[in-house]
Amino acid sequence: MGVQTGEIKATVKDYILDEFLPGEDPEALTDDTPLITGGILDSIATVKLVGFLEERFGVQFSAHEMSADYLDTLDDIAGIVSSKM
């Protein structure tokens, strides 16, 4: 489980850096950096992220999960993805 969330986090982190934070120092994005409440992911970006998670990890999200309550940090994201796998 621990190894798995670590891999999920690394994959998601790379995706977010590439897609939404081009040029950012990877170290600046930590496991608890607020993504949605911190202004990094807006509503469209959140939808794109969920699309990526669904395709990459073969999981399904319901509409109510696409919010800061479930997806605000890399920790949150790894947690919800691994619970669905």
Binding site: G23, P34, T37
Partner: peptide
């Protein structure tokens, strides 16, 4: 500045759709 810090600063001062 770090892009993350900058976005966080914007999020404190603007609605998210204006960042």
């Amino acid at each position: 500045p770090s892009l993350i810090r900058l976005k966080q600063f914007c999020a404190k001062n603007l609605p998210l759709y204006m960042i």
